[in-house]
C-alpha cells in the first residue's frame, strides 16, 4: 500500500467531502420541508390529497436513485422544450440536478417515515387534545407533529445515513463529491485500493458525526424517559 499517496490525497478528498456534505445537507433540509406536507396529505382521507402523494412516493421509492439522477441529468437535457424553458439555467447545472433528485427522493422516504409516525401517535393524546377543544391545525402543530417527529427520529436517522451514501451517485453526473474526487485521483494513479479506502474512512467519519448528533437529539427529545434529577 502506498501510504504517501493516501496522505497526499487528503486535501483533495476533503474538498470532495465538503461537496458531499453540502449536497446531503441541502437535500435533507429541503426534503424534510417537503415531506411534512406530503405526510399530512398521505394520512388524509381525501383521495385528491392522498392518491397523488401515494403515486409520488411509489415512483420515488420504487426506482433506483441512479436511474432517477440519470433521467433528470441526461434525460431532461435532451429535450428541446426543457432547454428553452426558464428552468434550464437550473437544470443545466449538475449540482442543482443532484439537489433536485436527492430532495425528491429523500422527501418520498421521509414522508413515508412520518406517515408511520403520525399514525403511531398514541390515540389517547389525540383524544385529550380534542377534549380540550383544540382546533385541528393547532392540534397538528402542538401535539401530532412534534410527537411524530420524536417517534420518527430513529427511522429518519437511517434515512440520513442512506442519503449520505446515496450521494456518491453524484459522481456519475460529473460532480466532484467525495467519490468523484477519489475516482479522478484513481484515474491518474491507478491506485483504487488506496483511494477508495481513504474515501471509505471519510464516509465513516461523516456517518459517525451523524450517529452522534442523532443520539444527542434523541436524548434531548425524550426527557420523560430520563431518570429525574434530584435537587438537594
Amino acid at each position: 500500500m502506498d501510504f504517501q499517496l493516501m496522505i497526499d490525497s487528503i486535501p483533495q478528498l476533503l474538498e470532495g467531502a465538503w461537496m458531499t456534505v453540502k449536497l446531503v445537507a441541502l437535500a435533507l433540509a429541503l426534503g424534510i420541508c417537503l415531506a411534512i406536507p406530503l405526510a399530512l396529505a398521505r394520512v388524509s382521507k381525501n383521495p385528491f390529497l392522498w392518491m397523488p402523494v401515494y403515486g409520488f412516493i411509489f415512483v420515488f421509492r420504487g426506482t433506483p436513485l441512479l436511474v432517477q439522477i440519470f433521467i433528470v441529468y441526461y434525460g431532461l437535457g435532451q429535450s428541446e422544450a426543457v432547454r428553452e424553458s426558464i428552468f434550464w439555467p437550473f437544470f443545466k447545472e449538475a449540482y442543482w440536478c443532484a439537489i433536485f433528485t436527492f430532495t425528491l427522493n429523500t422527501s418520498a422516504y421521509t414522508a413515508e417515515i412520518l406517515r408511520g409516525a403520525i399514525q403511531a401517535v398514541p390515540h389517547g393524546e389525540v383524544e385529550a387534545a380534542r377534549a380540550l377543544g383544540m382546533p385541528r391545525l393547532l392540534m397538528l402543530r402542538r401535539v401530532v407533529v412534534p410527537r411524530a417527529f420524536r417517534l420518527a427520529l430513529p427511522a429518519y436517522g437511517n434515512e440520513i445515513i442512506l442519503m449520505l451514501k446515496g450521494s456518491a451517485l453524484a459522481s456519475t453526473i460529473t460532480l466532484l463529491d467525495l467519490t468523484g474526487v477519489a475516482r479522478v485521483i484513481v484515474a491518474r494513479t491507478f491506485a483504487p485500493y488506496e483511494l477508495f479506502i481513504m474515501a471509505a474512512i471519510m464516509y465513516l467519519a461523516l456517518t459517525l458525526l451523524i450517529v452522534r448528533a442523532l443520539k444527542y437529539a434523541e436524548w434531548r427529545l425524550s426527557p420523560h424517559l430520563r431518570p429525574p434529577r434530584h435537587s438537594k
Binding site: Y74, Q78, A94
Partner: peptide, 8 residues
C-alpha cells in the same frame, strides 16, 4: 456527447 448536445 449527451451533455454537449444538452448545451452544458
Amino acid at each position: 456527447y449527451l451533455d454537449f448536445t444538452a448545451g452544458r
